[in-house]
Design a protein around this nucleic acid. Structure first.
Lengths: 348, 348
DNA sequence: CCCGACTGTGAACACGCGTTTATGCGCATA
DNA sequence: TATGCGCATAAACGCGTGTTCACAGTCGGG
């Protein structure tokens, strides 16, 4: 490592004191233009960057956000998590913040908890974003009580509100409502659902939205047609396989908690000799990368993930910089995307 | 923020001096067992974490690696980049390192360069990983000359070797050879190629591997069947569309530079009325997430991305910690994955 | 012409920790 | 008993920067 230049040397070279250099860097008002110019020029010339560690030690922020993605399967596999991640990083970057990305396989594991704590206590990140978190409330509450600001995505919050806890969820109820409305508009009245993981916000809220939409249309919910799932493709496959083990009637249309589940379900249906959408319509949720190219191309509900992550990041940084202590809550918009996997019910 | 505890207070509480606390934390040998126990106990009890900024200022490493993913389209879209990212983060994490993730849209842009430089000079990351980098040699060479350690993935290196520059590439030549061998074993003799971006290592090396494999089998390369591409799906689609604008004969088999390109090509072929693999066989490269579920399921060459990222991260950290200055080079293994998109050529 | 207000600047301290140097102590050897 | 040695620990310095405080200089108003 070549010897690093520091602000003292810059000061010498510019013929001013070190305090003045600091004032220039931090945009203080009471420094005359010609002095500022001179200092800036020397900084440019010698490729000087202030040492962040020293700045932090002297009281500045780290301008670093911790991103904690629970369950790596979602990140490394085919998933929307990588989209969320990219948008968060880009949004933060545009505001001068950096993102320390973590992948947490199991939040309850000792080692993982230590890593998370280190990020906050040792590295002193300014705030954290938890995605897909489940069952880690004690940890998050501890962090908040220590004064850290935390944003949570897709988390089912059981109890009380807390300051410095920002909650962002998708407008699942509306989205599911759009899906059911569409199926009904096609003439379907026998509609089933493959649920998602009930430990996250998305699980219960989608189920609730489904129930409300069905009630709105005065449709009966057949308990046999409420199948369990966990947001993974394999769970959709398994749900259908299990259902078909016993000889019973399928609904005419199926809402899947997300597109991955829909893919799995369709695969199982095909293997059993059913055609989609000729024999049964299937609608998904998320508008996954694969959905457009899937056969049949998947009709689904698109969520404005990008916009939401942008809003989340901006809100978090604003809270960091202006010390907002109020709990914020926001949701993302949804839109129906019609493709091929649903069709009008055949009139018998 | 509640008042933070520091090593001085820990020392007081443990009844020792601050230096002793430091010695315990940094595992010095000459501290007797009972003292160590006592200090550790206080540290645990008060949930103390040493301030990283202070540690760095006093000469320690940041234990942070910068990850620079060039071209966000590859990250946020459906791509293997998210797999690489996840593996790097997990590998680094298991060695006590953290990853500062960046997405770089355009390396030649002033703002982007500044962000990269800030990571090294201001935040003092211990090393950097560049993925899919192109045309940024001046920047990387500058960083290396400043003493930073840099690992590069999928970069075509034109000139001289440099110390502290670790180069990791995929064994494309072997992989393409396996693809061509397979096509030939199915009876194909008229084989075309849709190339990738020639600015990255993968482009030229795949082309070269293709040429060598064809020569090995004493097969003619028809220049009409060498189509340009850029590793994106749209380029595969466009390559076929453009080819079919003029009325001419297709090859019996097609090697696509990666699976995305293959998807695009197959889509264009279908639209033109050709069936895969009945009319033309298509083989891809990478074993993309979608390939297994694609229709037809894509025959392709799988690359051990995960293993390579693991090796890369380990090598980089070893270089950081032991000051290795030798240029390393490594490659990842490949394997043929047979699915549905290729079939034996019809004997006329 | 004098004094107060204001402006620009430099000296000094604080941030938390690693590390070097010095010190005190106990023990063994001469 | 005196000397030497090793060991555990304490004291002090340095890392690079932000910020406060005091001071010199300037300007304007009375």
């Amino acid at each position: 490592m070549t010897k690093e230049i520091n602000s003292t040397e810059i000061a010498k070279l510019a013929g001013v004191s070190r305090s003045t250099v600091s004032r220039v860097i931090n945009n203080y008002a009471n420094v005359p233009e010609h002095t500022k110019q001179k200092v800036m020029q020397v900084i440019q010339q010698y490729n000087y960057y202030p040492n962040l560690s020293a700045q932090v030690l002297a009281g500045k922020r780290t301008r670093t956000i911790g991103l904690f993605m629970i369950d790596s399967g979602r990140v490394s596999g085919d998933s929307i998590s990588s989209l969320l991640l990219a948008r968060i990083i880009e949004s933060a970057s545009s505001q001068g913040y950096y993102v320390l990305t973590h992948i947490v396989r199991d939040v309850s594991e000792k080692e993982e908890i230590r890593t998370i704590k280190e990020s906050f206590y040792q590295r002193r990140i300014d705030g954290g974003i938890f995605i897909g978190a489940a069952n880690q409330e004690p940890l998050i509450e501890e962090l908040i009580e220590e004064g850290f600001i935390v944003a949570i995505v897709d988390q089912h919050l059981p109890g009380r509100e807390m300051p410095n806890r920002l909650v962002f969820n998708f407008d699942n109820e509306t989205g599911v409502g759009q899906a059911v409305d569409y199926l009904v508009s096609l003439g379907h009245r026998q509609i089933g659902i493959i649920n998602g993981d009930m430990n996250r916000y998305s699980g219960p809220s989608k189920l609730h939205g489904f129930q409300r939409a069905m009630a709105r249309h005065k449709l009966e919910m057949n308990p046999e047609w409420m199948l369990p799932g966990d947001f993974n493709e394999s769970s959709g496959y398994k749900a259908i396989k299990d259902f078909l083990k016993v000889d019973r009637e399928l609904p005419s249309a199926l809402f899947a908690a997300n597109d991955s589940v829909a893919f799995g379900a369709i695969r199982a249906l095909k293997e059993a000799g059913f055609r989609v959408p000729q024999h049964i319509s299937v609608i998904g949720f998320d508008d996954h990368f694969r959905s457009e190219h899937h056969r049949p191309a998947l009709t689904t509900i698109r969520i404005d993930f990008a916009g939401m992550m942008d809003q989340l990041t901006k809100t978090l940084i604003a809270a960091i910089e202006h010390g907002s202590t109020s709990t914020k809550q926001a949701t993302a918009g949804t839109a129906l995307v019609v493709r091929e996997s649903c069709q009008s019910i055949a009139i018998d």
